[in-house]
Simulated assay, not measured.
Amino acid sequence: MRIQKKPVVDLGCCNQCGVCIDLAPHAFEINDAGYVDVRPLDRYEDDEDILEAVKNCPQDCISWE
Rank of each mutant, 00 (worst) to 15 (best):
I3E: 03
Q4I: 14
K5H: 05
K5F: 10
K5S: 11
K5M: 13
K5N: 05
K6W: 13
K6G: 09
K6V: 11
P7E: 07
P7S: 08
V8Y: 05
V8S: 10
V8P: 06
V9D: 01
V9H: 03
D10N: 08
D10E: 06
D10I: 00
G12A: 08
C13G: 05
N15W: 04
Q16W: 12
Q16R: 14
Q16G: 04
Q16E: 15
C17Y: 09
C17S: 10
G18P: 14
G18Q: 11
V19L: 05
C20T: 07
C20L: 09
C20S: 05
I21A: 02
I21V: 12
D22I: 10
L23I: 09
L23N: 02
L23P: 01
A24Y: 10
P25A: 03
P25M: 06
H26K: 08
H26M: 12
H26W: 13
A27H: 03
F28S: 03
F28E: 08
F28K: 01
F28D: 03
E29Y: 04
E29V: 07
E29I: 04
E29M: 08
I30H: 05
I30L: 10
N31M: 11
N31D: 15
D32I: 03
D32L: 04
D32V: 03
D32N: 04
D32K: 02
D32M: 06
D32E: 12
G34C: 06
G34M: 07
Y35V: 13
Y35L: 10
V36G: 00
D37K: 01
D37H: 01
V38M: 07
V38R: 03
R39N: 04
P40S: 01
P40V: 00
P40D: 01
L41R: 09
L41G: 04
L41F: 08
D42W: 06
D42T: 02
R43Q: 07
R43T: 04
Y44D: 00
E45I: 14
D46Q: 09
D46I: 14
D47L: 15
E48C: 13
D49R: 12
I50N: 00
I50K: 00
L51P: 00
L51D: 00
E52C: 14
E52V: 02
E52M: 15
E52T: 13
V54P: 00
V54Y: 00
K55A: 15
K55R: 14
N56H: 15
N56R: 15
C57N: 08
C57M: 10
C57H: 08
C57T: 06
P58F: 15
P58K: 15
P58Q: 14
Q59I: 01
C61G: 14
C61F: 08
C61Y: 06
C61H: 09
I62K: 02
I62S: 03
I62F: 04
I62V: 04
S63G: 11
S63V: 08
W64D: 07
W64E: 09
E65D: 07
E65Q: 11
